[in-house]
Design a protein around this nucleic acid. Structure first.
Lengths: 247, 247
DNA sequence: CGTATCGATATGTCTATACATAAAATCGTG
DNA sequence: CACGATTTTATGTATAGACATATCGATACG
């Protein structure tokens, strides 16, 4: 049973119109950390001239980014990148290094295991890939201020992302590398709760049987699976917070 | 430690402009279930004439609802209420009866405990209320197809919501009653994971120590606390799913 | 009867313009 | 210098109109 029904496989990306292109360009810079929280994004009239369009078009892009809580617009002052306070923004970032950085904590990374192999049945099922091929399996740990923050268990489809073969995941977290090198068109997150087994407990420095928040993230490019990742956060000490306005 | 930093107390609601009023009016009908999933909302030209405004203004309201995944717009056909597939929509609904109904399951409700009392220190802390006053404390259980779906533990500030004194929570779930009778301006959700204690395990028909997904929801009207509720879902069998498009 | 075409229609994007509003910046005065 | 009034400026909302595009439904054709 699931809280929500599934929508089936993700559809392919639609042709980007101008305002969408502006939105995507800005979003990319924010999500990769190129424009960190607090950064002032160009004024509307600057975007107007650089994209050669009217103010309404720029404004539409900025409005959507505001609704997604990625930016904050202040009259007279301009528009600024928000720190990831909201659930949707936190989920969208998907780069734990940037997430920890945005929280003002020091980031630590440790590769636990990394292997390349031909995809077995379980790998294919997890990726949702039909054909068999090569995959990279990665296990690693992220820490904030030297305290374990999350453990990551990831599978990358090497046929869809051949460049991953040359990446050095010993020094760069796979999420960060992917975000900077591989464009994606669809992503799906699923949040659930489990209890820590022996291995997870040891890696996160918590008790066996302690609750953990799980985020499973799948990413596609034009309906082709790129990567599947499971993130385990120590459950009681972590919260995902979302705020709404309404009536 | 928290995945996200807190933004402090919610700010008061801003003056609703015309497009926001349209958005809020439609949103209300969707969130209360008056317009169920699949319902066709009025055409843009109908909204234009009923609100006496231009098409751009109507379109802006509908665009925001689209971005929030509350509606789906199809050329030539019109705009339709979506079933709550997305995380943000699921979180926004906050009415478990409507949620279960939208999933096509039969809804069951059972009041476990309901009492009225003067707020003690713990109650005030939970609501974030400064002054002391009367509160209603409610415990109840929601089920889908006769299987326990979630248990709810709620506190309502009777001074902020005096009408709640006359509501019959034995027959109507408090979430549903509140959604139909009490307007709110800000809400905050927090998602975390815990393990079931003896009481929760018994109510949800799961094992003690089994993981549970927790949603804590606080609701304000113009910065005044209205209600605080904790929902416990059996953890492994429930998932919150969110999808994104991006590049 | 099935299918290809085409027109009607509702949404999707974009422009140019206008005025409102909040807040930073500046100025002027005590 | 302190402090209030004024100006400037970037965003916020709204308009009317234009053209693009997807798609429903009807019509014509094989």
């Amino acid at each position: 049973m699931s809280l929500v029904t599934d929508r089936g496989k993700p559809q392919s990306a639609d042709k980007p119109t101008l305002y969408k292109q502006i939105r995507i360009d800005i979003e990319r810079r924010i999500l990769t950390g190129e424009w960190p929280p607090g950064h002032r994004i160009p004024f509307e009239h600057e975007l107007m001239s650089s994209y050669g369009c009217s103010r309404m078009t720029v404004s539409k892009a900025l409005s959507e980014l505001t609704q997604a809580d990625l930016i904050e617009r202040r009259r007279k002052a301009g528009s600024f990148v928000r720190r990831p306070t909201f659930l949707s923004a936190v989920l969208k970032i998907a780069d734990i290094r940037a997430e920890i950085g945005a929280l003002g904590r020091s980031y630590g990374y440790e590769l636990i295991q990394c292997s390349r192999r031909a995809a077995n049945a379980a790998d294919r099922a997890r990726l949702g890939a039909r054909k068999t091929g090569k995959v990279i399996a990665i296990a690693c740990r992220h820490s904030a201020d030297d305290v374990p923050f999350a453990i990551e268990d990831r599978l990358i489809d090497l046929d869809a992302v051949p460049e991953a073969a040359t990446a050095d995941f010993a020094t760069e977290p796979p999420g960060t590398w992917l975000l900077h090198h591989v464009p994606w068109t669809e992503a799906e997150h699923s949040i659930s709760a489990i209890v820590a087994d022996e291995q997870a407990a040891a890696a996160l420095d918590i008790a066996i049987g302690a609750p953990c928040l799980v985020i499973d993230r799948h990413t596609w490019r034009s309906a082709r699976p790129l990567t599947a990742v499971r993130l385990l956060y120590p459950g009681e000490s972590h919260k995902l917070v979302a705020r709404f306005k309404g009536g």
